[in-house]
């Protein structure tokens, strides 16, 4: 079976904040002084892996290891400095819940705006609108500007939209930390349902229990390099063991 996501030798370098040239004056001064250096930080260094349709893959690793950068590259938000990523399907990214909500618009208006951002037209969104609101449990507040929502409510609506549109790949980046226990459980159930229906899952979390519950395979990234790729128990086990070793 052909791959849904192909990550080939991907490297990502960032220009560091203080090195950045933000004004014309700085730019010319640096240009004249030949100081336009581009020293940077390597977030990813030659990472390769691929994901087949219907797989559920977790990305694990410590803070700052490059997981989120990897997800953003897969989601098409960033282009890698080197290497290539090919994705043969549509993506519903959950990199931050409620990204793209306009606080001044009502919940209802945001459902359609967010749908459009994910590439779905008004008619399509109107068809699944009731399901979205129902899942988010926001019937009462749907015509209120999102500005007055609690963070939990925003998270619920964001999750609900992203998981109700028909996408081939769901990309989830540690977004479930918000929301209460009951809603988290509901979210996991929803992701399991989607997975059962054939949606491919890319999942980032520090909660290894949840990783093991949702995914069969894990990819471990450390300091931008691939440390392991294999069955979830094996990789999570090695990762835990290594983390314990680091503590000492």
């Amino acid at each position: 079976m052909s791959n849904l996501i192909d990550v080939k030798d991907v490297s990502m370098r960032f220009i560091m904040e203080q090195e950045r040239t933000n004004t014309l004056k700085e730019y010319f001064v640096k240009l004249v002084r030949r100081k336009l250096r581009f020293s940077g930080f390597t977030a990813l260094d030659g990472v390769s892996f691929s994901v087949k349709p219907g797989e559920a893959v977790a990305l694990i690793g410590r803070n700052g290891s490059g997981k989120s950068t990897m997800l953003k590259i897969i989601a098409g938000v960033m282009d890698p400095t080197k290497g290539s990523v090919s994705v043969n399907g549509s993506i519903a990214p959950l990199i931050e819940l409620g990204a793209g909500f306009d606080l001044d618009l009502t919940g209802r208006e945001n459902v359609f705006l967010n749908g459009a951002l994910l590439g779905f037209n008004h008619r399509y969104m109107a068809n699944i609108y009731d399901q979205i609101v129902d899942f988010a449990e926001l019937e009462q507040f749907i015509d209120v500007p999102v500005r007055s929502y609690s963070s939990g409510m925003i998270a619920r609506l964001g999750f609900s939209i992203a998981t109700h549109v028909q996408a081939d790949i769901l990309v989830v980046d540690e977004v479930l930390a918000v929301g209460d226990y009951a809603f988290q459980q509901k979210c996991y159930k929803r992701m399991e349902e989607m997975f059962a229906k054939g949606t491919t899952l890319m999942f980032v979390s520090h909660e290894l229990d949840q990783v093991e519950r949702l995914c069969k395979r894990a990819v471990w990234i450390d300091h931008g390099k691939l440390r392991g790729d294999g069955p979830v128990e094996e990789i999570c086990g090695a990762y835990m063991k290594w983390m314990k070793g680091q503590e000492q």
Binding site: K72, A75, G76, V77, I91, P93, I95, E96, A99, G100, L117, L118
Partner: peptide, 8 residues
């Protein structure tokens, strides 16, 4: 904020 999270 949006451009960092969704591809459009």
């Amino acid at each position: 904020a949006l451009l960092k999270k969704v591809y459009v």
